[in-house]
Amino acid sequence: MKARLLGMCLALGAAVGVAAGPAGAADKPISGNLRIVIGSSSTGGDTYQNAAIVAEALSKKLGINAKVDAVGVSAAFAAVTRVSDGSTVMFFHDQSYLGHLLGLKGYPDIFKDLRIGPTVSINPGDAFVGAKDSKLKTIEDVIQACGKGERVRVAIQPGGVSEVYYGALKNAVGIRFPGKEGNLVSVKTGSQGDKNQLLFDRQAEVIHGSVQANEQYTRLPAEDQKAMRFLWLPSPSSTISQANPEGMGATGRDELLKFTSPNVHVTLDGKADFTFDKEFFFLYNKKMDPKAVAYLDKALSDIFAEGKVQVTLKKAFFIPNFHPSKEAAVYLKKKAEQSKALIAATR
């Protein structure tokens, strides 16, 4: 009786399962469900948003079901390392190799252990922000203050893009005022809320924020404890100038350009300025079928050729930046080398 019942269950289940199973065509390297794991566990952050915009476009283009899963760094690396058939891919930004360079646990060497996929977009919004009533009104003021021996505290998130910006600023102080770089100190903290709070409490003179999150604060009257001002945008003006002219909120693109190189200078080596674009790209399993890689490259290049995804990205203040996987790999490798040199110089 029991056995019969079990058999019945299985048969019924199997029938339904087959009927509802993926009707993928065998000639397409990727069909049915595509799982995109991201290196962030937040569904409110910029990684999720960029991934979601791209996933939506891929779903429509390929007639598949692309789904973004915010599993976080270690789980994302684990998932993409485990599945090689192209049904799971990872999507993340420069943190993926910076974490490894900074020696964080749980970060493989993406250039060795994974395969670099295409780059998709840039979030140009990262910014260094100060309190409006502070006497440090520009990033040059910050560098000068350090040169004069004043201590300037910068609130950053440790172990990532944020730390590279801080390293670059410290490096610039050292080049301009040798021996004074120790006056720039970091306050290591987490969320945007915590960084803002440090500024409100005047426990930091400068915080790492973003155009998206802090623009409204820059429009508050100076007597408001919460009022802030932009000091520096690490994205170069060539990137920001691609944004919509409206910029963000009531701060237009031209206003934002005032905080970017070459209009402000955070020197890299005494000659050129340091600039950095936070770029989003795909990461694949090392053994993923080259056909599947080419298939996704082709799909994305078609999507970007159509031009609709650019509008969506720009509306959310992201800059479209498509490069097929081969180009992306060469480019990111070079970028990682530069970051490595900078990290070595400031440690």
Binding site: S42, T43, G44, G45, Y48, Q49, A52, I53, S191, Q192, G193, N196, Q212, A213, N214, E215, Q216, Y217, R219, L220, K226, M248, G249, K315, A316
Partner: peptide, 25 residues
């Protein structure tokens, strides 16, 4: 522009994707 709990943190995404900026204003 700062979420008060984990659910409102997810909602931020809905605002940004609609091009709506959260903050003191």
């Amino acid at each position: 522009g700062i979420p008060g709990d984990s659910t409102t943190a997810v909602m931020i995404g809905a605002f940004t994707l609609q091009g709506l900026q959260l903050g003191p204003l």
